[in-house]
Simulated assay, not measured.
Amino acid sequence: MQRKEISQETVNLLVDIIKETIGEGGLKSITKRLEGRDLKGRELVYAFAEEVMNIYGQKGSYALIRQLGRDLANMFL
């Protein structure tokens, strides 16, 4: 099975939706934790999700990711 990479355009779209959900301050605190790490595509998404879990806990991060999915679905409808 061929492994596909997540495009930068997709990452930017997700970041914009996350900014609307948790606010610019919340996004900055997460991205500050990821600074200096050379992450791209899939690794960036997983590291971002891990930092969200570290900050908001298991239930909070699940709620944020669920809301992200809802917002993303609404954009495509």
Rank of each mutant, 00 (worst) to 15 (best):
M1D: 10
M1T: 14
K4I: 07
E5S: 10
I6Y: 07
S7H: 13
Q8I: 11
T10N: 07
V11T: 11
V11G: 09
N12L: 04
L13Q: 13
L13E: 11
L14Q: 11
V15S: 06
I17F: 07
I17N: 07
I18K: 00
I18N: 03
I18Y: 01
K19R: 14
T21D: 13
T21M: 05
I22F: 03
I22Y: 04
E24K: 04
E24G: 07
E24P: 15
E24R: 02
G25E: 06
G25S: 08
G26W: 08
G26E: 03
G26L: 10
L27G: 05
L27P: 09
L27Y: 04
L27N: 05
K28Q: 10
S29R: 12
S29C: 06
I30P: 11
I30T: 07
I30F: 08
I30K: 01
T31S: 13
T31M: 14
T31C: 09
T31L: 15
T31P: 05
R33P: 00
L34T: 11
L34P: 01
L34A: 14
L34H: 12
E35L: 13
E35M: 12
G36S: 08
R37E: 15
D38A: 15
D38V: 13
D38P: 03
K40Q: 10
K40P: 01
R42S: 11
E43D: 15
L44R: 14
V45S: 09
V45G: 05
V45D: 06
Y46K: 06
Y46D: 02
Y46R: 05
A47Q: 09
F48R: 01
F48V: 08
F48D: 01
A49L: 00
A49M: 03
E50N: 05
E51K: 02
V52W: 02
V52A: 07
V52N: 04
V52K: 01
N54T: 00
Y56K: 02
Y56G: 03
G57M: 06
Q58M: 09
Q58I: 01
Q58H: 08
Q58N: 03
K59P: 03
G60R: 03
G60K: 05
G60T: 00
S61V: 00
Y62W: 05
A63G: 09
A63F: 02
A63N: 13
L64Y: 02
L64Q: 00
L64T: 01
L64M: 04
L64W: 02
I65P: 02
I65T: 03
R66T: 03
L68C: 08
L68T: 01
L68Q: 02
R70N: 15
R70L: 09
R70V: 03
L72Y: 14
L72R: 11
N74R: 15
M75I: 11
M75V: 09
F76Y: 13
L77A: 14
L77S: 10
